[in-house]
């Protein structure tokens, strides 16, 4: 790897760290209802939304009400996106006269965007009208991210608060243990965090050449005519356009990942320059990293947030190293053909198959690890063409449960579930009362945290097993041997952890995969958010015990190491056998 390669990774991580505290502090103010510099501009809009929707913003909700509101809102959004796709041929803003999306693909896509996964079984430019992209997909990019943020903030309140009665009149089903108001958290997430950041990023992306237009596609003459497979001379090309920049900004910031165009951020109209690449990569991890600081501020001890961020970063860094090393080392099959894979001033070297020459090895591998660490799923290179160990790094980051930064909100609440496990196990081992931030961790919290960790594992492994043993599943696998298994495992790891990226070699736009992956995405999103909110409700009812001699400190390097061990051991135990049959054996076969 070149010096510039190391410098690029270092610059990226440095910028991310520098932005963590200011954004994290700002988000803490937003969620604690404090004044921000956007108050004068956005407060009237916020009040209007509450009045228009009938939301009683001053009321606290107990966890059941909060979870029910989340489910109802998401179900309605999902059905709207489904309807938009099925009716797009008769709706406006469809200059290319695209037909209605098939029912199974419409279901898969609606689920995908409502669950913040953004798995795409379609090509955007040939399938989705502008109306569907904007009113359906982009809107879901905002509200699905805001849903994740809301669930996290509710959990943090459960950890931070002392028991207090709900406001009068109480919400149905509870008299104490309020964890906030879902409608307020959703609205403030969108208005104060996602919209302003997306606006700034979209402008920056447009300045770099990302397209933003309602105009129809353009047909242009090729500078150099080519001959196609039928010996016909091709002199023209149709360039797909559309309102891309506005969708790409939130696709990255909201850890959504769904590309406007089929090739996602490898497309020159989505990601034209090295600067746009850096900005988009930063946007992927920005909010998930900053939320760690937000968490620390909200619980009154920023050291707790830094400790969690440190644990995430320590897992992330080696995965970046592994992916970059694997790709930069090149492909032995190319070496046998005499291809020069040495890095030099004239070429990036390494395994450049499936990568954009304007990004090279480092920015492709760094993006692949960031996007899979963050449950984002956007790509600027084709992961299917990565070396086996490069693909393994991306796949394993998803399989850890998307807790290494993870999705906006969902990443940190997943990591806090691991923290609960870590605290409980450590407490048992040393004979201390398991507690976190002064709240006792008891059997109920352990059961819920176990659900959060085990459900995605179950979904991924069972889904993969069913796919490879059924004709409907195996018919989509074009690569024989371990790489074919890797493709199926990657697909279910992606859907079962709400990531959305793909090993593109699998034909996933079939009724089997559209339905199976759709179900995986639904379970992975909502059947994790519900136990998380249940933990929040349970903790909110508990008194905070003052720290004493028997308290396990959870901000120390020792606890960070322990937390990493718990995350890695669970991830390794659950997925090592499957990985051994896929990327690991493929790596060994390549070297044989």
């Amino acid at each position: 790897m070149t010096t510039f390669g190391w410098l690029q990774i270092g610059l990226y991580l440095l910028l991310l760290l520098l932005l963590t505290k200011p954004l994290g502090a700002y988000m803490a103010r937003v969620y604690q209802g404090e004044r921000t510099f956007l108050e004068a501009l956005l407060r009237p809009m916020e009040q209007f939304i509450y009045r228009a929707s009938g939301a009683r913003a001053q009321d606290e909700m107990d966890w059941k009400t909060y979870a029910t509101a989340m489910l109802v809102f998401n179900a309605l959004g999902l059905l709207v996106v489904y309807a938009l796709q099925r009716l797009q041929d008769v709706l406006p803003l469809n200059p290319q006269d695209l037909s209605a999306v098939s029912p199974d693909l419409a279901f898969n896509t609606a689920v995908s965007f409502a669950t913040n996964t953004n798995w795409q079984g379609y090509s955007g430019e040939t399938t989705m009208s502008y109306l569907t992209q904007m009113l359906g997909l982009t809107v879901q990019n905002f509200v699905s991210a805001a849903t994740g943020l809301a669930a996290l903030v509710a959990l943090v309140r459960g950890l931070a608060r002392r028991p207090a009665p709900l406001s009068s009149p109480p919400q149905a089903g509870g008299t104490e243990g309020g964890i906030g108001n879902f409608w307020v958290d959703l609205t403030r997430s969108v208005l104060y965090i996602l919209l302003p950041l997306s606006f700034l990023l979209a402008l920056a992306l447009v300045s770099q050449g990302v397209v933003q237009t309602f105009g129809s596609y353009r047909t242009v003459s090729l500078l150099q005519p080519i001959t196609d497979a039928n010996d016909q001379t091709v002199t023209q090309q149709t360039l797909a356009l559309g309102p891309a920049a506005s969708q790409i900004a939130i696709k990255q910031l909201g850890t959504n990942g769904g590309g406007f165009f089929s090739t996602n951020s490898a497309h020159p109209f989505e990601n034209p320059t090295p600067l746009s690449n850096l900005l988009e990569m930063l946007a992927i991890l920005l909010i998930p990293a900053a939320l760690c600081y937000t968490f620390g501020r909200m619980v009154g001890d920023t050291r707790q947030g830094w400790a969690v961020l440190a644990a995430m970063s320590i897992v992330f860094a080696p995965m970046v190293g592994l992916a970059v090393w694997a790709e930069q080392s090149g492909n032995p099959a190319f070496a046998r053909l005499g291809v020069d894979q040495t890095a030099s001033d004239l070429q990036a070297g390494g395994n450049m198959e499936g990568k954009e020459v304007r990004f090279g090895i480092v920015n492709s591998a760094l993006w692949a690890t960031a996007t899979t660490a963050a449950s984002n799923g956007s790509v600027n290179a084709m992961h299917d063409s990565f070396m086996p160990l490069g693909g393994l790094a991306a796949m394993w980051l998803m399989q850890l449960g998307e807790v290494v930064y993870g999705g906006v909100g969902s990443g940190l609440y997943g990591m806090l579930a691991f923290v609960i496990i870590a605290v409980f196990v450590a407490g048992l081992m040393v004979g201390r009362t398991p507690e976190y931030l002064g709240k006792k961790i008891e059997a109920f919290e352990m059961k819920m945290a176990s659900l959060v960790i085990l459900i995605p594992v179950l979904v991924v492994l069972v889904g993969t097993a069913v796919a490879v043993v059924t004709p409907a599943g195996s018919a989509s696998v074009f690569n024989p041997g371990p790489h074919g298994l890797s493709e199926v495992l990657y697909a279910f790891s992606s859907a079962g952890n709400n990531n959305g990226s793909a090993f593109a070699g699998l034909n996933a736009n079939t009724p089997f995969y559209n339905v199976a992956l759709g179900l995986a995405m639904l379970i992975a999103r909502y059947w994790l958010a519900i136990p998380v909110l249940a933990i929040a409700g349970s903790l909110a009812r508990k008194n905070k015990a003052p720290a004493g001699a028997g308290t396990l400190p959870t901000h120390t390097p020792l606890f960070v190491v322990w937390l990493i061990a718990v995350v890695v051991i669970v991830g390794a135990l659950a997925f090592l056998p499957a990985l051994a049959l896929g990327p690991l054996v493929e790596h060994l076969m390549l070297g044989a």
Binding site: K64, A67, L79, R86, P103, D104, F444, Y526, S538
Partner: peptide
């Protein structure tokens, strides 16, 4: 017909999810 199948599928999933809330609440209450 397909539309009905998928819409019902989604509604059933969310109904089961509401049931999961109730199960979690019962577990919480011991």
């Amino acid at each position: 017909m397909h539309d009905l199948v998928f819409v019902v599928f989604v509604l059933v999933f969310f109904a089961v999810s509401l049931g999961l809330i109730a199960v979690c609440q019962r577990l919480m209450e011991g």
